[in-house]
Design a protein around this nucleic acid. Sequence first.
DNA 1: GCCGCTATAATGTCTAGACATTACTGAGCC
DNA 2: GGCTCAGTAATGTCTAGACATTATAGCGGC
Lengths: 239, 239
Amino acid sequence: MAKPASLQRQIRADIEKKILSGAWAPGYRIPIEHELMARYGCARMTVSQALSSLVQAGLLIRRKRGGSFVAEQHFQSLVLAIPDIRADIIARGAAYGLKLLSREIRQPKSEAEKWLARDGKIIALECLHLANGSPFALEHRLINLKSVPEAAKVEFSEEPPGSWLLGHVAWSQAENRITALAADRTSAKLLNLDAGTACLCMERRTWRGDARITQVRQLFPGHLFELLAKFNPATPARS
Amino acid sequence: MAKPASLQRQIRADIEKKILSGAWAPGYRIPIEHELMARYGCARMTVSQALSSLVQAGLLIRRKRGGSFVAEQHFQSLVLAIPDIRADIIARGAAYGLKLLSREIRQPKSEAEKWLARDGKIIALECLHLANGSPFALEHRLINLKSVPEAAKVEFSEEPPGSWLLGHVAWSQAENRITALAADRTSAKLLNLDAGTACLCMERRTWRGDARITQVRQLFPGHLFELLAKFNPATPARS
DNA sequence: GCCGCTATAATGTCTAGACATTACTGAGCC
DNA sequence: GGCTCAGTAATGTCTAGACATTATAGCGGC
């Protein structure tokens, strides 16, 4: 805990510890603000800010007149890092390779493509990510050129589209869908698998405000890939 | 936006909107607090609290003397809801059913079991979750009785272990692993599938402080289940 | 016993200051 | 030019109040 222990932080840390250690169970009514004021010898505002922070972190619920309570569910969510496939492969100590299978700029055709861009043009990419020369993931990506005009100039034969977008485009919302499915013949062939092999399929749509940015479908051979998610309710994690 | 618009919330919402719409790009220096005071006609504390809240949400960085800036990375992570299978099934409008296949209290044997509890006893459960009477997920679960002694008295023939644990045990950390794999013969039979069908496999270890609580492996038929993760940097989502 | 009203105990929000802390900026010196 | 140092502009934290809001608990009437 590097942060210089301000009184507020200390109060927050104390209460957090009580909650996470289980000493104050979910539903427990914590001491009222005036009692905490007395205990720490500070103004009510100071206590109140510490509590507010815990509310924002999801550990507390406060009710007017009722008091403050330890939140019932130390909420059921995980923080999942968005995989940047290239970084991921390199982190595993393998050599990264990219094989661009197709790249075209055109009007949207299918329903999914029209979701991304109703009128303007899109880039449609198909590429294969390689780890140490072997197929690691198959990616279909669409990019809305109205939202990201610079993308029209990029080849995507060296830098994978995901990594490029991460560095060049801000996004405010994303929606992920993760499923398991059997590889169809075409995909299996590209990934060097038998048809029907279990694969992890990840579909993501990304947008900023109302502007739709990109849409991607990534297929990973099940035995090669796993998605890791850690969770720590205490610090919704920023340094 | 149900919340009664307090001044603080309004300031926060205004700034959040500017950031998410892209009007204030990452790195942009937002107006100083005294300017915001003037703009909203309020005390500095009010502005400051609004900004603090945005810092905690990860949208802002504040630097003494330097000013406040839009955070560089609207951080690249997704919030993934931990599936409470029963709640999930009910939310889909199906009837939930539980079939307990086995339940024993014993010493840990395998390596994985010893990870959970080096010396004390554990409960090992195997159960099948049903949606409208059809198999929906197969669950292997181990619970550390040293950490959760009450669990020894629970039958788990009515309430699924995941739901019971959520309500009875606080946890501070969890680690999830998500993969795709082909169902082996035994699992396939229980899930009413052909052997080799693609399934989503979710493994999770949960602990509180240093105490290990539970470890679970859930197998979902790929065509029945998808994991949704939404991302919205603005509200780390609690009502 | 049951219902409805009222007093009140708790949080929610805000103010107008104070002093602390930090790091940027510019002036002055070499 | 480049270095040092001091002034200062910004946030960080805290205070001691004020009034608003709301749900609860308890009382009184029926």
